[in-house]
Amino acid sequence: MRIKAVQAWWVRVPIEAARQHRSDFGQVKTFDAAILRIETNDGLVGWGEGKNAAGSAGSYGALVHMLNHEVGPQLIGRDPADIAIIWEMLYNGSRHEMAAREGHAMPQIARRGMSVAAISAVDIALWDILGKSLGQPVWRLIGGRKTDRLPAYASGGWADADGIGEQLRSYIDRGGFRAVKMRVGAMDGAPQVSAGRVRAAREALGPEIDIMVDAHGTYTVADARRFVHMVADQNLAWFEEPVIADDKAGMAEVRASGAVPIAAGESEATRYAFRDLAVAKAADVFQPDPAFCGGISEALRIGTIASAFNLRFAPHLWAGAPCFFAGLHVCAAAPASFIVEYSLGANPMIHDLVEETVEARDGMVAIPEKPGLGFTVSEKFLEAHAQRC
């Protein structure tokens, strides 16, 4: 079995005005991703996804060009089952043979960001192919699954103090969730505004529902610390990305300033960044995004680091179907996983890109049973929304 063809598209799906929301990313009018198709010489097809924007909207022309014209040609003729070897080849670039011989990484200079986003897309697609070639779901190939369903939290929460309780309650009523996440931070202005929204949410939901908050890295250390103290009595499940991901020392300072667990990692790429988070004692929950951190392979390694440091693992899954399904398989096999993200904003890249129904029931999401990642791409939908790059 050899790789025969590699094709990536910038898929941009408009979101109808009634379902749009506004956050620190502005008015979100589209859902964008780089979707990758890898085909083997015996007709098997694997699907992957790469991301270079933390929000659901972004520009993907450069990443798609990289996949089609730089990464793709390196894959033609290779055995798609050589997943780890291909990962290291793409990561180390022109020095990959020396790195393999010497037994340590020698990455290319542009080793993070878009380079790893491209590797992520390839890695996810290769695992999909391997599972299909063996007639097995990916979770069985990476260690098995600890459960057939995982708890999920409803991810959304942009309404103001007057409406946040009703908005979050609608999530609970819709999918039976026992945990919800709301956005805070720069979108609100001063920390006390966010704190007021949190208090309104808690009053509306009562003490039994877990509430997570996500600042998207928009606070300064000082404001994040102020916010932690303002919500100290609200029993938050976690405070996500309080400050910019590049400021790990600042994040550690926020973590040390109060009792609210800190979650981080959607903006981090590779195991090395998560090692630094762990050593700095900057986070309690690791949140790698499979479409950005390095794919399924690297997410598994990051999960191992979380377990080794007695931390927890909850990947960032505000994404398209290939990333979301990849996250489900990883969580099924990862000892440190405990909950998955289920987006309640408009997400056509999950619900319309694939033919399967993706849903939460009683606050739980089922782990796929089909071979590979377990979904079927709607080629008609893909063709309708693929952009020319």
Rank of each mutant, 00 (worst) to 15 (best):
K132A: 06
R174D: 15
P137D: 07
V180T: 02
W139R: 06
R183W: 01
R178G: 09
A179S: 10
W139K: 05
G165D: 03
D173Q: 14
G135T: 09
K181Y: 02
V180F: 03
G196L: 04
G189W: 12
P191W: 05
A200C: 13
A159M: 08
A161H: 12
G156H: 07
I172Y: 09
G157M: 01
Q192N: 15
G175M: 02
R145K: 15
M187Q: 10
A154M: 06
P151A: 10
I172P: 04
G175Q: 00
G144C: 09
M187A: 09
V138H: 03
D188T: 07
I211A: 05
M187K: 08
G165C: 04
G144Q: 12
W139A: 07
E203M: 15
A154V: 03
D173T: 14
D160V: 10
R149E: 11
M182A: 07
P207H: 13
G143A: 07
V138S: 04
S133E: 12
K181T: 04
R140C: 13
S155F: 08
G157Q: 01
D162E: 15
R178D: 11
A179Q: 01
G185L: 06
G185K: 04
Q192V: 15
D160G: 11
F177D: 01
G196Y: 03
A204F: 07
D162N: 13
M187C: 11
E203V: 15
V193G: 04
D173H: 12
P207A: 12
P137R: 04
L168T: 04
A195I: 05
A179R: 01
G189F: 10
R140D: 09
A154N: 05
G176F: 05
I209A: 00
E203Q: 15
L168P: 01
L168E: 02
G156C: 13
